[in-house]
Simulated scan of single mutants.
Amino acid sequence: MKPPKLTEIQKRRLKVLEPKLKVAISNRDFSTAKALVVDLQNLLKPTGHFTRLIQSKNRLYELALEIDELNTAIRGLKSNRAVVNSNTRLYLEATSLLAICYLRQEEIELAKPLIKEVLTNDTVIKSARTRKQFRLEIIDRFNQETALYSLKNKDKEEFTKEELQEQVGKILMSQNESEIYTTLGKSVPQHTKYLLFEVHQYSLKQLPSAERLALPSPEEKIKDKEVGLTVFQSAKRVIYNSLCDKESEIYKVWYTNGMEIILSKGYISSAVLSCFNNIGIGMKLLSASIVALILKFGLEIYCVKNKPSDLMELRGK
């Protein structure tokens, strides 16, 4: 049974609460976002407007995932999946996000049935072209999550910002862009390549043959350059805000004083080192290769081309 039409009071409150929630999520302010979702729940639940409520809850738990509150995200996403129809986009989103939570925990076997649900559902996205595009993008996302978070607390090295900058200089002087991707891939531990092979192979098995053949094979996916590309793309989820947010120190210095100051002070190396340390990634050659690629592109181009998309954006494509 469809819920009744929203009352005028509900409409007025939604015009206030939903934009505030969007801002809180953009600012990664989880406590404010959580309070706003409670207000939305009190507003929408009594009249049975669950679809609109779950949309907001999915966004809240995606934020929880991004700030590494994985247990909160897992509990919430499980709850969302339990109360919405399995043939809805809300269910598809919650399932995809829950799979990502498990990939970040290296719980591959828990992620697999969720990956299968996402990739074999032909009902939610009606357009074959849009469905194919979504699958390509979500497989990329699964691969990136597997690659990045399997690097946590593995083969950690002790090195300073100065040592990192020295390594960056050597790479920039001796390698082109393609070679840097290969160097980056070579710096990745075999453990990560094994997991990437497993997740990519499993994802491909869920696709129709025509879609499967359009993607790299698992063997190709773990070649050094391909791994380097995957890790570089995954790194944006950790470093983008520190480099590109208009309120970040680097962005303000770059906007005011130009790129020369950024380079001379080693701001980018410092930011990447700090972001990776925060999640437990400490590999000098890997970090140096990523910094070198950012410098090859230039900060402005990097920020334009590498803004992370969230899963709620993918569904609307």
Rank of each mutant, 00 (worst) to 15 (best):
L53C: 08
V37T: 03
T120Q: 10
I54L: 03
E198D: 07
A82P: 00
S178F: 10
T51Y: 14
V83T: 13
K15L: 15
Q190I: 09
I67C: 13
N153P: 12
E179K: 06
L14C: 05
N121Y: 07
C275D: 15
K193E: 12
T120P: 05
Y102F: 14
E166W: 09
F197A: 03
E166H: 07
S56P: 06
N176R: 07
W254P: 01
I279L: 09
L207C: 10
R12C: 06
N27G: 03
G316P: 00
R129P: 02
N143G: 06
L92K: 11
K265H: 15
S79P: 06
R75T: 11
A214P: 04
L311H: 05
Q206P: 03
L172Y: 13
V124C: 14
R81F: 02
P19W: 08
Y302F: 09
M173Q: 15
Y302T: 02
S287C: 11
Q41N: 14
V199T: 03
P218A: 14
G316E: 10
L90T: 00
D140K: 09
E93D: 10
K225L: 03
L204V: 04
Q41Y: 10
A288D: 03
H49R: 02
I268H: 13
R315V: 08
I301Y: 07
R13D: 15
V231R: 01
E313A: 12
K161C: 12
A271W: 00
L60M: 04
K265L: 15
V238Q: 01
T192W: 05
E106G: 06
G316S: 13
K305Q: 01
